[in-house]
Design a binder for these strands. Structure first.
Lengths: 260, 260
DNA sequence: CAGTGGTCTAGACCACTGC
DNA sequence: CAGTGGTCTAGACCACTGA
């Protein structure tokens, strides 16, 4: 009698999911059914279901039932590829945009805004909190799954009066545009973290409880200063970030992402 | 009357935490107190507290109370540094071990085991599921916080009869040992993902609900084949993985991690 | 010991879904 | 409409903590 009853119920259901007795997409017995089956009160059954929900195993929909979640098939995004070939080193720095096996990313929306810098943005760009920055937002779907949120932040003194302030795609890419403006990129730093989504991300990704997001902060520098911060927010269950160093036998390499 | 009562209670408490009325480490009012304050039943109050717990804002300890969590100060682990200096490229590939500002990592345990390969390990090492592999496990603390789990998997035909099969540290590192055995490393691939912790990780890291883990799978290759898989599991709230490419102004660079 | 959270029950009514 | 999950109540007893 070690475990509490709601744990035991959760364990039993988890086993049935792991063993395949309950397959992905299938409906679990209704709560009244579980009450009868386990001789527990409904609150106890619901405690067990809450556990499974928080572990990302099931999802419940009002009026319909509780369903076993499909295991997510993550896509691989290539962060960067560093070749150390006989003829010398070569650095290929792809954007963390999908190079996927099945399905093309689609950009759904692009927005340009001008807002005061948050504390975290200000720190990376080495400006004061509250200083104005230009944000270029876009988001990408993979099939019908919202997959990636991209926010690029530019210091106002760089972006003011340039194409960066206007909506629409940047011809030939923003890196080249920044170089033309006298701020050639000399390097960048990626900082990768994971956390639970905030309310906006939760809605946007249509997440169920128990799914984290992965955040990549890519800060680009000229020789003198930070010139851009790009923040990529991915669904944690849909992405694997790849980063290749050295010579990798061809069959193990990730696909090159589409140009962006 | 839009939101249910437990949401309203959670919102009120969340505001008090955000505004600083309830400071990190402080105890929330007891559940009976909240019952009186919000004129709700204890179950409803507990629903609200469960919400805050899942969002990583509070932690409850039986017999003591519910406490506001300290915001985690993440440490930065340097995944790799790629220099593109005038004198030529240089690739520094640090293990994802902490280069921290305050506190030194300590290795707490080392274990060596011999087990059948799981599906995911078999795939990376290109062997059959169930084939024996040697696992070298270790874990690191940062102060008194369990921080990092490392599992290295070696194919049996490489490790059999070598120092890899014995407990204790590998002299001069396992990369060099593998090279001496005729399997020089030519490159590696990092695959980075995030997910909710499993039960073992949950206990090990002493996590509260609402904290994901970050997993780095580093597969090392010789010219011919995979020779090692190292899996790093971090507390998601305690780490930022850094990855530097190009020339970064010195003051923006991460600390070099301690040799390992 | 008193006070805290952890577990559990039995029942009620509401909101949503598909038929 | 019947059946599902969503919310809520009122009360009970247990397990853990610190004084």
């Amino acid at each position: 009698m070690a475990d509490p009853k709601y744990q035991q119920i959760a364990d039993r259901l988890r086993e049935q999911i792991a063993s395949g007795a309950l397959k992905p997409g299938e409906r679990l017995p209704s709560e009244p059914d579980l009450v009868r089956e386990f001789e527990a009160s409904r609150n106890t059954v619901r405690l067990a279901l809450a556990l499974l929900t928080n572990q990302g195993l099931v999802v419940t929909r009002q009026g319909l039932g509780t369903f076993v979640l499909e295991p997510a098939r993550p896509f691989t995004a290539l962060l960067s590829r560093v070749k150390v070939s006989p003829s010398g080193h070569h650095v290929s720095t792809a954007l963390p945009v999908v190079g996927s096996a099945d399905g093309e990313p689609e950009t759904v929306r692009r927005l340009v805004e001008r807002v005061p810098a948050s504390a975290s943005v200000a720190e990376k760009l080495e400006i004061e909190r509250g200083d104005p920055v230009v944000i270029r937002r876009s988001l990408q779907n993979l099939g019908d799954v919202p997959w990636l949120l991209i926010n690029s932040y530019f210091p106002m003194d760089l972006a003011s009066g340039t194409a960066l302030e206007q909506a629409g795609e940047i011809e030939r890419g923003s890196i080249r545009l920044l170089a033309d403006l006298g701020h050639p990129q000399s390097g960048f730093v990626d900082e990768i973290g994971a956390r639970m989504p905030d309310a906006r991300e939760f809605d946007f990704f249509r997440l169920s409880s128990g799914t984290p997001v992965i955040v990549v902060n890519r800060t680009s520098y000229s020789a003198a200063r930070p010139i851009r911060l790009t923040r990529y927010v991915y669904r944690g269950d849909r992405v694997r970030l790849a980063h290749e160093v050295g010579t990798i036998p061809a069959r193990y390499r990730s696909a090159e992402p589409a140009a962006s």
